[in-house]
């Protein structure tokens, strides 16, 4: 059943975002920002964790999961280390992915070209 919930959760978040594309003039960047910020706030309210308990990895897939992971890192590190943790916690769970994106982006751009 876990896979069904993961499918539903990720799919439904994407449907909400598609609704924004269809009925507003928002660009992809606007939609990504909105979802990321929403994820961070919901994590702060404790809602995103419930969502993730239900949807498992499906909750991590939309960028809202990225925002939630930032907030989660800030809280965890803030509790552990005090005020420094509020800053270093930002990249606690997302740093790995970000570094991966930068490194992958760099090497891919060296070899691959955009197609016509």
């Amino acid at each position: 059943m876990g896979y069904v919930w993961a499918f539903l959760a990720s799919g439904l978040v994407c449907v909400l975002a598609q609704l924004l594309y269809e009925y507003t003039k928002w660009t992809p960047a606007h939609v990504l920002v909105l979802l990321t910020v929403t994820g961070a706030i919901l994590e702060g309210l404790g809602v995103y964790r419930l969502f993730q308990n239900w949807a498992g990895g499906g909750a991590l897939v939309p960028v809202s999961g990225f925002g939630a992971s930032i907030a989660r890192g800030v809280v965890a590190e803030g509790q552990r280390m005090g005020w420094e943790g509020l800053f270093s916690g930002v990249f606690e769970y997302t740093g790995l992915g970000l570094a991966a994106a930068i490194i992958a982006g760099f090497f891919i751009a060296l070899v691959a070209k955009p197609k016509e």
């Binding site: 992809p28 920002v33 961070a40 960028v63 925002g67 930032i70 800030v74 803030g78 509020l86 930068i102």
Partner: peptide, 28 residues
């Protein structure tokens, strides 16, 4: 390559970080 890699992802990072920081701060 270096300076424009985050031309679209940049705002996501900026607002994700600010929102995550503020909610984390409030919660802690």
């Amino acid at each position: 390559l270096g300076s424009r890699m985050f031309v679209i992802a940049g705002p996501v990072l900026v607002y994700g970080t600010v929102a995550g920081f503020l909610t984390g701060l409030a919660k802690v």
